[in-house]
Amino acid sequence: MPDRFSPEQQAAVGNRVLCVHHRRRRVIALALASVTVAWLGVLAPAHAQEFPSQPIKLVVPLTPGGSNDVLARTLAEKLSGLWHQSVIVENRPGASGNIGADAVARAPAGGHTLLVAPNNVFVVNHSLSPRLEAAKDLAPVTLLGTVPFVLVAGSSAKVGSVKELIELSKSRPAGLSYASSGIGSPHHLAAEMFRSMTGARMTHVPYKGGAPAIVDLLGGQVDVQFGAINQLLPHIRDGKLKALAIVGNERVPLVPDVPTLAEAGVPGWQGEVWVGLAAPPRTPPAIIERLNRDVRKVLAQPEVQARMADQGIVLKGSTIAQMAQTIEDDTKRWAEVIKEANIKAE
């Protein structure tokens, strides 16, 4: 420094230079921190977009061959091509879907293990079985579609209409027996609602799956069944089972001559059997949204629509919020049926 400055002045100037230097370092550090935070914010969504990072498993809590299984295998085929990852279907039947649902509920929350299941798994089972507390927290992804149910009579109940069925049930001391795929299953709940609405005398005979129930229905061990149209249609066409009514608000093109329950003399029916997709609890929202978007894209494909229509399945994708609301509404609706019929878990 020039000699005209005193030592004290030189020291003051030096201090000011150091302060400026420290302020600059602090500003640079803050700027770098801001850039780092912004960069991490970019990386977080990018990480979510990396899904799926490994093979995906679609768990169907029912036996192979049913509506849920057919739909899951179609999804697996299309999603595998979309995601460039293997998508496999694993059937884990038992306890009206409880075993498979509980397995998914306890799986890692990364979106690589998913559940394809009917509505009873989401709205009924956890109410019937206290041990399924985890399953009630499954994360909704999307509704997949509805499965028309049909009321059929076997050879042991020689009736030609719903009215005749109700009359026959009241004329027999023990009433009629009806088959289901298990306690709390859609087959069971539909029959109990029918019994409540009509006063028909009916006794429940639960099976471990829809296939063995149909075998005994064909063999005359049980009288009637409410079941999925795609499983019962071959036997209806062969004349081995008599289709009495469609359980829903509209007729089904596969059996156009079969009336709805309302047309058959049972007005006021509410509720339909639907299939939904869910993920384990605590699955990141970004992954749930990705799943919803990609699955709905598959459901909208004309080829998939046509393939499922041949099975009697009506595809209906939904938002995450719509599925959550459907679960809430149906839980209230079926709670009344469960209470009235005094349905207990196995």
Rank of each mutant, 00 (worst) to 15 (best):
R4D: 13
E8A: 15
A12K: 13
V13E: 12
G14R: 15
C19R: 14
H21E: 14
I28R: 15
L30N: 12
A33W: 12
V35I: 15
T36N: 12
V42E: 11
P45H: 10
A48S: 13
I56E: 03
L58Q: 08
G66H: 06
S67I: 02
S67G: 14
V70Q: 12
L71D: 06
A72H: 04
L75P: 00
K78H: 15
V89E: 05
N91D: 10
N98K: 13
I99F: 10
G100F: 05
V104R: 02
A105E: 01
A109S: 14
V116H: 06
F122N: 05
S129R: 13
L138N: 05
T142D: 09
L144K: 04
T146S: 13
P148E: 02
P148W: 00
L151G: 00
V152G: 07
A157I: 00
S161R: 07
S161K: 07
E164L: 03
I166G: 02
K170N: 13
A174R: 14
G175S: 08
G175Q: 03
A179V: 03
S181Q: 03
I183E: 03
I183H: 00
S185E: 06
P186D: 08
H187W: 04
L189F: 08
A191F: 02
A191R: 06
E192W: 02
R195D: 03
R201I: 12
M202W: 01
T203L: 10
H204A: 05
V205R: 05
P212H: 10
P212A: 10
G220V: 04
V222F: 04
D223P: 06
Q225C: 01
F226I: 02
I229S: 02
I229Y: 00
P234T: 08
K240L: 14
L244P: 02
V247S: 04
R251A: 04
L254H: 07
G265L: 09
G268D: 07
W269M: 00
G271M: 04
G271E: 01
G271K: 01
G276L: 04
G276K: 03
P280I: 06
P281S: 10
P281I: 09
P285F: 09
I288H: 00
L299I: 10
V304I: 12
Q305R: 15
M308C: 09
A309C: 11
A309W: 11
G312P: 01
L315G: 02
S318Q: 04
A324L: 04
I327C: 06
W334Q: 07
W334S: 04
E336M: 12
V337T: 15
I338H: 03
I338Y: 08
A341R: 10
A341L: 07
A345Y: 10
E346Y: 11
